[in-house]
Nucleic acid binder design. Structure first.
Lengths: 161, 161
DNA sequence: CTAATATGAATGAAGG
DNA sequence: CCTTCATTCATATTAG
C-alpha cells in the first residue's frame, strides 16, 4: 500500500497540475500527532508554525493546514455523533446485535484505524517518543520535528506546582 | 444577530430537500454583480430589494442575502490578506519559487471565474451591460434585472453637483 | 469502466 | 468584523 502518489511526473510540464493538495505521509503523521495531542483547533499563529513544519516535507499553505484541522474536527465529531446515534438506537431497540453493525460501519475514515497516533505531544515523553521509528529517513526527520515541538510548545513541565 | 429566518420549504418532492439555501446560478450572477459594483454592505432596505430580485429565480430570504454579503465580504478580505501575505513573503525572500507555493494554495472562490464578475453596475454602462448575453432564457431575465438596477440603484449620476 | 469511498476545498449559517 | 460548525461539492483513490 504505497501511497506516495503526491509526487507524480507532470509529463514534461511546468507544473504537476495538482488541483488539490495531497499531504505526504510524514505531513499526515505530524498533523495527526498534533491533533491527538489535544490541539484540535490551532489559532492563527500556531497554524503558521505547523505549516512551516510541514513545508519541510512538501509544499503546503496555511489554508491547507486550516482546512485539514477544520475537516478533521468536523469528521471526528460526525463520527462520534454517528456512533452515539447508533448506540442510542440500538439501546432503544434493545438488541445488542445492532451495536456490531454500527461499529463495523463507523470506522473507515483514516487508514490508521482507530488507534490514534500519539507521539507524545500531550504526554511529555519526548525521550521515548521515537519508539515507533525504525530506520526510514523521512520518519527520522519527522521525529526531529516532534521532539523539537515537545520543548518549544511548552507542554512538558519538569516540576509541577 | 439573525435578521430574519429564511423561509425555505423543504416539502418539494422534485428536489433533494436541501437543508440550506443554494443560490441558483442566476442569483449568484446578480449577487456578484452587485457586490462588484461596489455595494459590498447593503443596508437593510437594499437587502430587501435585492432579495425581491433574487426571488424571481428561486426561494430566498432576506437572511440569505444578508449572510451572503457578510460571507462574501469576509472571505474576499481573507483571500486578499492571504495573497498579500504570500506576496510579501516571496518578495522578502526574493525567491520566485515562493510564488509557486502561494499559487498552489490560493483558493478560488467561485468556479465561474477568478476575475471579478462585472456587469457594469459601477461603470454606468447599462446600455451595453448585456454584451455577455447569448440567448439563454435565464440570462436574459437576469439582464432585465441588472438593467433595471442600474437606474433604480442610483449608481449613475448624469450631473455632478 | 463504474461505483463507492476518502478527503481537500467551498460555502451557508451562526455565535461572539 | 471575526471565527467556527455543518453541509455540500469536487476529485483522487480504490474496490468490484
Amino acid at each position: 500500500m504505497d501511497q506516495e502518489r503526491a509526487t507524480q511526473s507532470p509529463s514534461t510540464s511546468t507544473e504537476p497540475v495538482r488541483s488539490r493538495w495531497s499531504p505526504k505521509p510524514e505531513q499526515i503523521l505530524i498533523l495527526e500527532s498534533i491533533f491527538n495531542s489535544g490541539i484540535v483547533n490551532p489559532p492563527k499563529d500556531e497554524t503558521v508554525r505547523i505549516r512551516k513544519m510541514l513545508e519541510k516535507f512538501g509544499v503546503v499553505g496555511d489554508a491547507n493546514v486550516f482546512y485539514w484541522f477544520q475537516n478533521r474536527r468536523s469528521r471526528s465529531r460526525r463520527r462520534q455523533r454517528q456512533i452515539q446515534a447508533a448506540t442510542a438506537a440500538a439501546a432503544t431497540s434493545g438488541r445488542a446485535e445492532d451495536l456490531q453493525h454500527m461499529t463495523a460501519m463507523s470506522m473507515h475514515q483514516y487508514p490508521y484505524s482507530n488507534s490514534e497516533i500519539d507521539l507524545g505531544f500531550g504526554s511529555c515523553s519526548n525521550s521515548s517518543a521515537n519508539y515507533f521509528l525504525n530506520g526510514t529517513s523521512s520518519s527520522s526527520q519527522v521525529s526531529s520535528f516532534l521532539l523539537g515541538l515537545s520543548s518549544s510548545s511548552g507542554g512538558c513541565e519538569s516540576n509541577n506546582g
